[in-house]
Design a protein around this nucleic acid. Sequence first.
DNA 1: GTTGAATCGATCATAAACGAACACAATCCG
DNA 2: CGGATTGTGTTCGTTTATGATCGATTCAAC
Lengths: 253, 253
Amino acid sequence: MVQENRKKYILKALNEREFISVNEFVGQFSVSPMTIRRDLSELEDKGFLIRKYGGAVKSEAVGNMFSFNSRVEKNREQKEKICRTASGFVEDGDIIFVDCGSTLFRLSRYIIKKNRLKVITNSLPVVSELINYSNIKVTFIGGDIVSDRKAAYGSTAEKLIGEYHADKAFIGIDGISVNNGLSSYDEKEARITLRMAGNADKVFLLCDSSKIEKDSFYRFAPVSLIDVLITEQEVDSKIISNYKEKNITIITK
Amino acid sequence: MVQENRKKYILKALNEREFISVNEFVGQFSVSPMTIRRDLSELEDKGFLIRKYGGAVKSEAVGNMFSFNSRVEKNREQKEKICRTASGFVEDGDIIFVDCGSTLFRLSRYIIKKNRLKVITNSLPVVSELINYSNIKVTFIGGDIVSDRKAAYGSTAEKLIGEYHADKAFIGIDGISVNNGLSSYDEKEARITLRMAGNADKVFLLCDSSKIEKDSFYRFAPVSLIDVLITEQEVDSKIISNYKEKNITIITK
DNA sequence: GTTGAATCGATCATAAACGAACACAATCCG
DNA sequence: CGGATTGTGTTCGTTTATGATCGATTCAAC
């Protein structure tokens, strides 16, 4: 059986049962455990399931009021990839800011294995993803809740961020260009992002390649605000060197 | 049976009974007691149950953020009744504090029809109930998130409450008596409650009758802190007059 | 209280599962 | 044809789940 059919079969099996094991498919398809593990890993990246020791369970996507509507989300795979890359920069014991937004939200699932992590965020989806993991301390930036963003904003929120300092900040934007810096579609959001970046030692910008060298309408900071730009695919080498000049590293995997 | 199934089964069993024992699962799953103990320990960390000698009991924690909380909550009907009564005191245009806890959480659904309401709370379940109603502005008190209470606590949270003033505070406690005042099982929770009450013009205490004239271990305020006590059934007229002397009205419907 | 049985949790040992790296074959494409 | 890509299997060191041991703790009966 070919790879595609195998994956379809796996998903079908998962619809009928709560848990599927690696070994059952090893028998059924006559392939090695490694192959099944790879299949499951890819399906996990796409958000179809969650791997567990020995197999996998259904993706819990439903039921969490604070989670984004993932089925219809665009660029989902790219976001997953960016976040997976970004999670490599999170170390045990870190204190990190996590900005709000649909990209940053996906970072949560890649950091739940870290130890003694402290996460400071204004995003409700991030909180609800992390709340059940005792190895992670979550601090929520309070303020006025904006329902369509599912996050806290406003002067209180901004002021509160100033009371914390983090090792790393993971932020999102709507556009970035060497000449015009970081830009956002929403001013209140930009102010939160700016504060988080300002109170962290190292700043990681997570954005998909479509936003690079594009500007959104509210420009709020020079590119020097960030240290690392993480995106999902190779970028023009000319662009890379432009950012390099500003001491910004672009990372794609 | 694999680990994942085991845990799900354990939680299912806990939904049907008050107490589950380690030994019953040792028999059912053919694993060692140590394994079950480890399972229970992990489930406790995530806030799904509370371990006791020989097994575990249900967690008090509320939460509509989680997939399998359809368990039958204790005293649920009484809490509903108390909250329905309390909602009668909420008026259009009010600014109100809502404390955290399983009783106060139920207040949300009775106030969603009000107009121009502003709700200030440290409870995540309350936020998630109200977030989709545009007629209600929600302000979340940030701070350290405590997973089993699903709310924010700590010095930041306490300080933040001081920055707000509300028309009314709706609070909960674990015990109240004329002589010893309000008491709580948890000190950090008491401090939040105290701040909310202190920053509101009128204070409504929501508690079921089993807590009246009972003391919990941390006494944190005299009964004069509150203005109105809302409970679910008729209280002894002697008690009513004792509270009346302190200018507290007891309301039962 | 005292005592004894049951339970608990820290620790160690073991087997299974895991993933990174490398190797190999099949396929694609200039 | 030859290089690149893709899918798979193998190896091997690491991680995870589990069970066993054993002293400490808890509970209940006295």
